Simulated scan of single mutants.
Amino acid sequence: MALNKRELFQKRRLRVRNKLKAMSDGRPRLSVHRSNKNISVQLIDDVGGRTLAAASTLEKDLGLVGKNNVEAAARIGAMIAERAKAAGVEEVVFDRGGFLFHGKVKALADAAREGGLKF
């Protein structure tokens, strides 16, 4: 049974999400989405079903529109850490989705940790 790339991505994403659900203990989820042109991250309260904070390279004031590189990911990670602190959140669970924890996703996570988020 050969699976294509999209099906493998979906399996990986669901596997990660289910593991996070089991260990979250009510902490908000830091969800990462990466496309070919942009990277975005949301801080989601799954219990209340709402977004607490978000950051993306699509925001004009950051000057990163259309950039999807390691430096842009690090700036987005620092920005989400700052916005999470403003929302009163310090501990989160990191949801990498179906993306591998390498390169841009790792840079975003490291910058968020340096900004004060614990996960």
Rank of each mutant, 00 (worst) to 15 (best):
A109H: 12
N36F: 04
G115W: 00
A74I: 15
R50N: 14
V93K: 08
V93Y: 02
L8K: 00
A81S: 07
A53W: 03
A2H: 00
S56G: 12
G115Q: 02
K21A: 15
K37C: 09
L20Y: 01
V105T: 03
H33N: 15
V89F: 05
V92N: 05
Q10S: 05
L20W: 00
V16E: 04
V47N: 08
E82L: 09
N69Y: 00
N68T: 10
L30V: 09
F9R: 03
R15E: 13
E82K: 15
E71T: 06
F99Q: 14
L62Y: 10
L62E: 12
R83I: 02
K5M: 03
E90A: 10
V65P: 14
S35A: 05
G116C: 15
K67C: 09
V32C: 03
R83S: 06
R27M: 14
R83T: 05
M23S: 14
N18I: 06
E7A: 01
V92W: 04
K19L: 08
R96W: 09
N36E: 11
L43Q: 12
V93M: 11
A22P: 14
G97K: 02
R13H: 04
A73D: 07
F9W: 01
K5W: 00
A72L: 08
G88K: 12
A73F: 03
V92F: 03
D110V: 03
F94W: 09
D95R: 01
D95F: 01
A112W: 11
L8W: 03
M1R: 00
L3P: 04
F94L: 13
K104S: 08
A112E: 12
